[in-house]
Design a protein around this nucleic acid. Structure first.
Lengths: 221, 221, 221, 221
DNA sequence: AATGAATGAGGGTTCATTCAT
DNA sequence: AATGAATGAACCCTCATTCAT
């Protein structure tokens, strides 16, 4: 299950381990909440709405979750676990720096496609004031940023990457990926284009950016 | 604050035209709402809270605004007007492509510093479901993206910019800027660093990226 | 209003100062709550029921009271004020010990007749676990007991009352009065009898008890 | 604890016959409910709380009792049976009137000490609205009152007791005993004093009261 | 223009109770 | 006999909004 082959197919390569939740009812509730939280927002989503969408009684929800916040927390916890695991797998593969960047982007788009509700939820949770999950999501974000910064530092040491502020650059890269993928979540023509060409174009131009700057620097010197 | 000179100072150059609102009371309400919407979210902010923060009676709010949504709409409308105006000013200046990119980034950071409440509100509104303003904010975002894409297209035509998908690249640039500025809104050391060095570093490396890629391409060919 | 004449009429002599509450709506709510708390108990009384009985919207209740407990607290506070005031009046009159005992009993029955709901509520609050008012009511009860104990001590000093433990005897007297008045709250024949003859019979026999024991003691010696 | 001798010791003489309930589990439930009903009140006690305290599943409770009310009813029924039995024993002993009064008081205090939860529950049930048990408890109370009234009537016939309204006087006596024992349930110094000296002091002074009044009456005539 | 009392629908949550296992 | 997941009515309370003043 862990071993993965880096093939040509651009998407759907990081969708392993869907992590079945503990009960089917619990799963229905979580799925419904994901959808509604993503669509309407946490505060604007009512328990009754979750119950209706999940085709479950309100009481049943409270049988499985302490309160509304715990549903969100559960969703976030699970998704973060999945993402961290995917990152760990990626880290363990010993790919080249360029390949790693490429894979991080691919991973991002895969997760987006696989469960766009949670992906949108994560976009929002970074700015939302939900006391529970905001921190967790931001921490995950920091983690990914640190991972990328690490790659950049390694590239700097190896002379593969132009001089830059690693962490700031890492956030910059994350921003690029998110902006494109967020736009790709839309439903118009542009969104489709971004979803199809985004990963490759991003990978190419980001590496260009990191790598080529260095060439020029050399030339400058 | 009103008088402005386009000098070297990287920030605080696009803060002209704070646009006095119609009444003092109306202004108090709007400011309170900005703060609360940014902090707590639209759905989680109550009219009572707005009234309390604005030191105004609930009745007074309804005297000036039809309902809660209209307050948000008013805030968004006003802010969009300001931003569009700033863009128009920028467009009209006939700057070089590199300078235009640089100025767009500076504008973004200026707006952030001047009124971080509204800036945060805008971050969120792009994902939030408030039926009224979401569209408007997304349209503004598209506008800015199109503007940047226009610059890129011009650069492609002039041979100043390497080959790329203009709109996708525009979104990429917007994403970079947002990611860094969003991180700069934090309150730790890194945030301070990003706020100080972000605009310049971004402008420099984005231009490097757009421009130098082309050099290499030439070399490739 | 304060000056009172101790006439023959057995009841309704301590009903002065009904203490109009601040608003008529507030009053309706309080009256309804008194009735329901007395009939059904605090925990078993719903806000909807109070609203229905008071012919008031639920929102209106919360406009005047922070929560259900505050309604109870308000009722208890007001009633305790009335009772303390009545006690003060009684204390200030400089009556003979026998007369004071008699008047305390009369007062008790008057309050019972005037607003039996609150009276029943008070019976219950002494044992109920409502955190708010239980203490207050018990304190009032202690106050009355202390007052009676004071009378007894004075009687002991003057040699008008037989030797006894003053505070224990005071509680005993209170218990006698309450037991009879509680029974008088029923709706059968016995209740009517108790209501009519209770005050006098109690006053007579209590005094007999306090006073005559002393005679015998003398005889014993 | 089971073996009992009618000795001098003022307390703990009526604690025979704890009446083992039908099942161990049923017993645990009942004990838990007694405690919680006494502490929190019937309405405020949830089935979950009972199940938790009794270390029993909710289902198990419903296996043994039809519903929450039936638990209360069972507790009340059992306790009333015990008290009635104790009264029967007392009645059957052919004691002197004075001794009977003394024993009734002792019985009251014994029951209080043995199971103060149920005792407090009984205090409350007289005012509480639980449709089932309120009536039963009041009936028991009436029974005891009637028993005492019977003693008084007998005393009147024998000329041992002064002229009085028998039933009203019986309630008066019950009230005295309850007031003192209720106060003895507290946890302060006074409570300890009342618990220790209450029964004797009450028995002595009540008899004094009933008996000596008569002497004086004779003197009056 | 400005107030804040009043409304009642709807918020999250707990409840006693049922029932398949 | 015993479990605890599931139900949905009802709980207390807050909400955006109205309207008489």
């Amino acid at each position: 299950m862990q071993e993965r082959t880096v093939e040509q197919k651009p998407n759907a390569r990081y969708t392993f381990l869907a992590m079945t939740r503990h009960g089917q009812l619990e799963d229905r509730i979580t799925k419904a909440a994901e959808k509604l939280f993503a669509q309407e927002g946490f505060a604007a989503t009512g328990m009754r709405a979750i119950a209706r969408v999940a085709r479950v009684s309100i009481g049943a929800i409270y049988h499985h979750f302490k309160n509304k916040e715990e549903i969100l927390e559960s969703i976030v916890r699970e998704e973060i676990r999945r993402r961290q695991r995917a990152l760990d797998v990626l880290r363990a593969q010993g790919l080249s720096l360029q390949k790693q960047i490429q894979e991080i982007i691919a991973l991002h788009f895969d997760l987006l496609c696989e469960n766009s509700d949670v992906a949108r939820l994560f976009f929002r949770e970074r700015f939302d004031p939900s006391p529970v999950s905001k921190r967790r999501v931001q921490d995950l974000y920091s983690d990914v940023a640190e991972y990328i910064a690490g790659i950049i530092r390694e590239g700097l040491a190896k002379g593969e990457i132009r001089s830059c502020q690693p962490l700031l650059t890492a956030y910059t890269i994350l921003g690029m990926v998110e902006a494109v993928s967020l736009r790709a979540l839309g439903e118009d023509e542009t969104a489709g284009l971004f979803m199809k060409e985004g990963p490759e174009e991003l990978a190419r131009s980001i590496w260009l950016w990191l790598h080529l700057g260095q060439e020029e620097r050399k030339a400058d010197a």
